Computed example of a mutant assay.
Amino acid sequence: MSAIHPTAIVHPGARLAEDVQVGAYSIIGEHVEIGAGTTVGPHVVIEGHTRIGRNNRIYQFCSIGSDPQDKKYANEPTRLEIGDGNTIREFCSFSTGTVQDGGLTRVGNDNWIMAYVHVAHDCHVGNNTIFANNATLAGHVSVGDWAILGGFTGVHQFVRVGAHSFCGVGTVLLQDLPPFVTVSGNPSAPHGINSEGLKRRGFTSEGIMAIKRAYKTLYRNGLTLDEARKQIAQAALEQPELQQFSDFIAESGRGIVR
């Protein structure tokens, strides 16, 4: 049966799997669903229309599923969904979505989220990401799989963070960050590709070299953005590893870090 501390308050309408653990003084709201194997530490508040998957570990003093920090929010029943296998450390805050977007904030699977991270309304976070301490997402941000945000990274609203990208400590992202690219600074500036991360994830040496060439096309060859897009799209026809890179820069609405 669920291991719920006697000081915890769990609404009768909440749906918890049998082996969910809830620590002392935590509060679980009426519309919360928590899957098997998940552990909720002490002094955690989980509220709103929130669904949490299996085998997550949520540490003490987190606020999960709170109302969005958006002045237009009018108590609509928007949602937060968290997948499986995530580690969410102390003092993190995740908000539900807003009806001005899709009404949903989503965090995927197997993410490593350190202390004091904030995920704002309508953000979509993929799988296997790392958010170091105090990384902050404004509203409507998307973060691709395997992306790494260094400590105190701040991401502006509506920005997209590409898969396998890397942000150094204290980075401020005001524009889209393409997949594979490493950036740092305020404002952020590109510093090559995340080659070590790509090696660890099984990219071939040929694939990594193709990504390096595409990076040079975009950042080092003195081309306009439109010219670079066309050359990278042509290269992607022969190098499948470049397809997501090509698609990302072609679809950017805010412009890219450059």
Rank of each mutant, 00 (worst) to 15 (best):
S142P: 09
G139S: 09
N127T: 08
T105H: 06
T129K: 00
T153I: 03
T153G: 07
I113H: 12
A135G: 13
V117P: 08
G139K: 10
A120R: 09
F131L: 06
H124N: 11
I113Q: 12
A147K: 12
C123R: 04
N134Y: 13
T153P: 04
C123H: 06
T136N: 10
G102S: 14
N128R: 15
G103S: 07
N109H: 15
V161N: 09
G108I: 08
G108K: 12
N134L: 05
F166A: 06
T129S: 08
D101I: 03
D145P: 11
A163W: 00
V107I: 15
C123Q: 07
H121W: 02
G103K: 05
I130C: 03
I130Y: 05
F166N: 03
W146P: 00
G144N: 07
T129N: 01
H118C: 06
V107E: 00
G139T: 05
D101K: 15
S165N: 00
V117R: 09
Y116S: 13
V141P: 08
R160H: 14
A135P: 10
G150C: 02
N109D: 15
V143A: 09
H118S: 10
A147H: 11
V159A: 13
N133M: 06
Q100I: 11
F158A: 04
F158I: 06
F131Y: 11
C123W: 10
G144W: 13
V125A: 04
T136G: 10
T129F: 13
N109A: 00
T129A: 12
T136R: 02
L149F: 04
G108Y: 08
G150M: 00
V155R: 12
H140K: 10
A120Q: 04
G154K: 04
N111K: 02
F158N: 13
N133R: 10
L137Q: 13
W112V: 05
T105N: 06
I113P: 03
D110T: 01
N109W: 05
A132G: 01
V107N: 04
S142L: 07
M114T: 02
